[in-house]
Write a protein that binds this DNA or RNA. Structure first.
Length: 498
RNA sequence: GCCCCCAUCGUCUAGAGGACCAGGACGCAGCCCUUUCAAGGCUAAAACUGGAGUUCGAAUCUCCAUGGGGGCACCA
């Protein structure tokens, strides 16, 4: 539990090449939790050394999504901090200096091979069923000669000089020591022809300079972890604690989510992109709870967690190294749970935009009255519009096939309707108790079953087959509105129902 | 092809040698409650990948096999 005692510095280091998705969000969440729990710092660093893959607006999306989830960083490109700049594109010079240092120390060398030649080498190696690595042609060029060629303007990259014998052992917090045969490793390029550092160098340098204590990242980094360790060691730096999270698998459990499958999801009202979740009616609280539990657990029965709970209870030791399939049905469940946990006022506030989007004017005061009877029966905030629109819209659309009362004639329905009108009219105190007493008495007097009688009333006030509880709804609507709707319904039946 | 990781119900997981004929949750099925829909309650079906070891004893430790996943760019 050492991380609970010493403040950690963690970083979330996305590249601005797309929208924040589930996997990234979960990594950021764990970063945030660890920083909060330990009283340390959560750093946001943008890894944008590859200008070709840069996508306009991606950085903004990243920050918006992180904020929506409630994962506020302590240092980052927008707010600065003591170890900035926090955008790698603004640190080019730094990486070059450290690259040069590696050359001087004999840990890196200049390589003049052309991309074309590299492609050829790779193809040859592959046809010989060998690892498709660089053949190390330039590894033995004397430094003096290399410098002359550089001075003469020859294009070049910088490669890490990986030992050709022995082993490199990396310590992953979840998996223990992982040993790699050095001969299976490559002489990775760490600075490109254009002078920009690659992830391997940039991340190592930044993690050190920014005093990062724990690196939490996806397990796709495991194969290059020995390189990262070697870079730290070459500089004589203390390595951060490496924590490689399992990947998320698609719902079937077979493989990673592909672009095509991610698009398919929207048909079911789901998305792996955080930016879509708000509009779909999901709560950030639910998203946090759900993803926290994919790869981490607290005990054998606790499943509801607020952010505060998570900050208190999160621990790296309980992380699970095995891959997890994304289960959206469970996301729905957590969304229900967190909707129910919202106060009526809070739920009303969150519901408001969904009605607006549907072109329905829904006053907050009414939404607050509707909130308690709605919160038990909606899965997403979006569901509320369909279920509760009749509270805010007056022109109820009645359907002929829903009348007359089940098992009754048109005439009998109209007679009962008139009696309902009289009974309602005479109710002095318009609340659920009086409505219940009055209506139930009438129902029994008429010898009708609850499903016939109340079903009819439900239809009358809402035009819906499914609605929140009847008497609560009638109370909220108010006597005048209910009576008006009853009259409307009766004339509809009179005119349109056979 | 090579390297690395992982392995308990359909899914997320509890389990760190005896407390396990394996617990919880989602989902699914049935029942109860019920004016609809939910919610709630109860019940059911459902798993330790296989094989060798170690041990008095293994879901838990070791090895092998199998399966699944990830990686092998002048991307991150």
């Amino acid at each position: 539990m050492s991380e609970g005692l010493n403040p950690v510095r963690v970083r979330f280091a996305p590249s601005p090449t797309g929208y924040l998705h589930l996997g990234g969000a979960r990594t950021a969440l764990y970063d945030y939790l660890l920083a909060q729990k330990s009283g340390g710092q959560f750093v946001l660093r943008i890894e944008d050394t590859d200008r070709k893959r840069f996508i306009e607006g991606a950085e903004q999306d990243l920050m918006n999504s992180l904020r929506w989830l409630g994962l506020q960083w302590d240092e980052g490109p927008d707010i600065g901090g003591p170890y900035g700049p926090y955008r790698q594109s603004e640190r080019k010079q730094i990486y070059q200096e450290y690259g040069e240092k590696l050359v001087e120390q004999g840990n890196a060398y200049y390589c003049f091979c052309t991309p074309e030649r590299l492609v050829k080498v790779r193809a040859e190696k592959q046809s010989k069923k060998e690892p498709p690595h660089y053949d190390r042609t330039c590894r033995n060029i004397p430094l003096e000669e290399a410098r002359k060629r550089i001075a003469a303007g020859e294009p070049h990259v910088l490669r890490f000089k990986t030992p050709m014998e022995g082993t490199t052992t990396v310590k992953d917090l979840l998996r223990g020591e992982i040993t790699f045969e050095n001969k299976t490793l490559d002489d990775y390029i760490i600075i490109k022809t254009d002078g920009w550092a690659l992830y391997h160098l940039a991340a190592a340098v930044d993690d050190h300079l920014m005093k990062i204590t724990h690196v939490i990242r996806g397990s796709e980094w495991l194969p290059t972890a020995p390189l990262h360790s070697m870079i730290h060691r070459a500089f004589g730096w203390e390595e951060p604690v490496w924590v490689h999270l399992s990947v998320f698998l698609k719902p079937s459990g077979k493989g990673k989510m592909s672009k095509r499958e991610a698009a398919e999801l929207s048909k079911d009202g789901y998305s792996i992109f955080v930016k879509d979740l708000d509009g779909l009616g999901y709560l950030p609280e639910a998203m946090v709870n759900w993803t926290a539990l994919m790869g981490w657990s607290y005990d054998d029965h606790t499943e509801f967690f607020t952010m505060q709970d998570l900050i208190e209870k999160f621990s790296l030791e309980k992380l699970n190294p095995s891959p997890a399939a994304i289960n959206f049905t469970k996301f729905d469940y957590f969304n229900k749970l967190h909707i129910k946990a919202l106060s009526d006022a809070e739920l009303a506030q969150r519901l408001k935009p969904f009605f607006e989007k549907a072109g329905i004017e829904a006053p907050i005061a009414t939404l607050e009255l509707v909130a308690p009877i709605l919160k038990e029966r909606i899965t997403t905030l979006d569901d509320a519009v369909e279920m509760a629109r009749f509270f805010f819209v007056d022109d109820i659309t009645y359907m002929t096939e829903r009348f007359p009362i089940e098992g009754c004639s048109k005439t009998e329905t109209l007679v009962i309707g008139t009696k309902v009108e009289q009974a309602l009219n005479s109710i002095e105190v318009w609340d659920t108790d009086h409505l219940d007493t009055s209506m139930r008495a009438l129902m029994e007097q008429e010898g009708k079953e609850p499903r016939q009688f109340f079903g009819f009333l439900r239809e009358v006030i809402s035009g819906q087959r499914i609605s929140p509880p009847l008497f609560e709804s009638m109370q909220i609507l108010g006597k005048a509105v209910v009576l008006q709707r009853l009259r409307n319904a009766l004339s509809f039946i009179e005119e349109k129902v056979a």
